[in-house]
Design a protein around this nucleic acid. Structure first.
Lengths: 136, 136, 136, 136
DNA sequence: GTGGTCTAGACCACA
DNA sequence: GTGGTCTAGACCACG
């Protein structure tokens, strides 16, 4: 579980942490029930205030992605993603639209755009597989 | 020059505008010397305050991408050359990866993801066509 | 009636014009019934947009300091200052307080402050007298 | 370090703050290395938004008058030397002249003007004394 | 109509 | 608690 912050991206640091934990959970890099690194080392690692990491974890808990057992630590929930299919679909559509707008601004034609997407899906699939092998 | 912003991404609106203008300039969709849409219409279109758009344009000016003549408008700088294909590709890959991560997090399988993308491309194509018809 | 604008003072240009006309009226440099210079030459002189001068004159008219006879020009009112004595006193107190605050910040002791004021009153009295002599 | 602003002067509030801090620094009333009052209390005191005070302090920093340490506070720069008496006198004369012009415009005769000034000096003296007593 | 500035409110990162 | 940033609304100067 390696986190990395881009201080120049404009996205609030605590949200960058939230997004990365969600992504790690989605990609299988973080397994259900697995413990997240605790706040203090993460803060030191990222050169960030402990409050900021705490805020990210609190946000993740309120989203239902992790659960905090006081005195034990934070763990990825066994069965997260409590959102209805329609809502999830809408969230995804927004991300897709953003990529399409960028493709349009960069004048990438649709067929080439689709090829790029397949390439990236392939790359992610390989990475996920490698993670699973590592865990066995 | 169609701008689109995502209010839930957490990325400041003015930076989203900056990125999209840079992308349009990078691809040549916006030609050197060409006028950007003026601040008020853009603000109205995006349902955002005029100052937010003004801040984006000010940032673009300080980056040397555009030039602003008070009382006249904002124009893409003459010496601004479109970026190489490789750089543009990299910009797009970042957006694509973001969508893929979201899809995985939401447990949308790859084939369904691809279908959604085709649907959105179709929707954008229709919208663009409608705009063109309106202009005739 | 010589106007002068300080573009760096931060005070809006139209208000600077208003203040100077009021001061000229107060000092006797501008006599009741006398014509103000018309908008166009003033604007050229000050390197300022005609709208800005027009706005200043409109403000002066609404304050009751001048009156505009369309097609003739603008004239200092015969009997302006329609404000009640209490209100006028309050306006003056604010200006006085500002000078006192500055004196305090500059650590000028009260007696020296009073001496400076008498000197300036003397200087203004001389100037006013000179203007009256000029008019005879 | 008592600040006082005039909401009707038309001069931007943040510039009024800048001027008063510069005056205090010029006279030595504010010592090099000394902390300025922090943003929130000043804003509350002046009944002004925090951002307005923050903007004044930012301007003072860019002028090299103060130095700001985020999370710590704002401090008068060490190498800041008080101005010569002549310069300070000139700053004060400008304020005095403004009050005199206002008095003439309001047709307040010089003797009454001087009486008013003595009254205000008295009022400020009393206020200052009250503050000192409160601090003991 | 154009862009620019001042003030305000809410949120962020840090100590 | 500290200062900093993003968005908003109203006003200013100019054409």
């Amino acid at each position: 579980m390696v986190l990395q912050i881009n201080f120049k991206s404009g996205l609030p640091v605590y949200l960058q942490i939230v997004e990365q934990v969600k992504a790690a959970a989605a990609s299988g890099a973080l397994q259900p029930g697995e413990a997240l690194p605790s706040i203090r080392p993460v803060a030191e690692d990222l050169r960030v205030n402990r409050n900021t990491v705490a805020k990210a974890y609190a946000e993740l808990e309120s989203l239902g992605v992790i659960e905090t057992l006081p005195g034990k630590g934070c763990f990825l929930k066994e069965n997260h993603s409590p959102l209805k299919k329609e809502v999830r679909r809408k969230m995804l559509v927004e991300e897709i639209d953003q990529a399409i707008v960028m493709a349009h601004h960069l004048q990438v034609p649709d067929p080439e755009f689709l090829v790029m997407i397949r390439e990236r899906l392939q790359a992610f699939g390989d990475k996920r597989k490698a993670n699973e092998d590592r865990q066995e």
